[in-house]
Amino acid sequence: MMVVIWGVVKFIVLLVLLSVYVLFMTWFDRKVIARMQNRVGPKLIGFHGLWQPLADTIKSFWKEDSIPRGSYRFLFWLAPIIFTTCAFAISFVVPFAPPIKIAGGVLHFSVVNINVAVLFVFAFLGLASFGVLFAGIASGGSKYPYIGSQREGAQMISYEIILALTLLNPILMSQSLNFETIVAAQTHHLWYAFYQPVAFVCYLIAMFAVSAKVPFDLPEAESEICCGYFVEYSGMKMGLFPFAQYIVLLVMSAIMVLMFLGGWTGPFWSGGFIAGFIWYWVKVAFFVFLFTWAWGTLPRYRYDQLMDIGWKILLPISVLNIFWTGFALSAHLPFF
């Protein structure tokens, strides 16, 4: 019973924290991109426009909610719910701070600490893409949502394979599917990014494609299909799509840090909860910033280029890399 109560408490805390994070992430995105383009960005409401996202949220709650006539109403309602729920579900298994040993056990900072955490992430990442697919289908044959969600489907299938293949290398090296065990395995060695530079770079590329951000934001390419899958949505229903996307982005960065960059370990001043906490969030914040940085600077790839990168370059490279890792591990090469 204690486990259930703890789970519910952690769940509520995570829900609130992630909502606040998304709120201020929109402010951060706007501010950073404005600076990159020599603008000021939001600045009127609060300190440097810090309360702007609150105003936006209140506005979008009171907007008129229009549903197109030819749409499948139930699917139209369901699509943003699926997307947001699955995005939250992914974040349940990700530890957001190093575990603390307390009297009578270990306090984990993930909602559930399961042995198949990496697989859980893939499972719900796949389910989350149904939110996007249904959004396109339910819009009632409207062209742009349809094209956008088709792109999301194809992009998700091709890049989730690459994500899985690249994460297989750290899994093989640590022989575990649990994030905390994988981080613990990296304290004995160097970080896995030094053993697996190829997998690290492949994951970095696939990460952008899976969370559908620039340069791979083809499902919602503004200049081609003017926002893609959520064109027909309005008000808060529309707001839920970027909301979930920001959570996926954070979780992808966190997994990157946990699997390749040693989680809460640092090159110096490590050990202890506070040091671990600071190291972990500095690394995660860097990758979250990287998404915004790419958004402000990079152009968008064409769709066929995206597919070529996925299937013709990244897939063979990551398969070969797995062969190399397996060989190195079973032959006990030095450093492995």
Partner: peptide, 8 residues
């Protein structure tokens, strides 16, 4: 996803 894709 593949089935939905074919239907789309």
């Amino acid at each position: 996803i593949l089935i939905l894709f074919v239907m789309m």
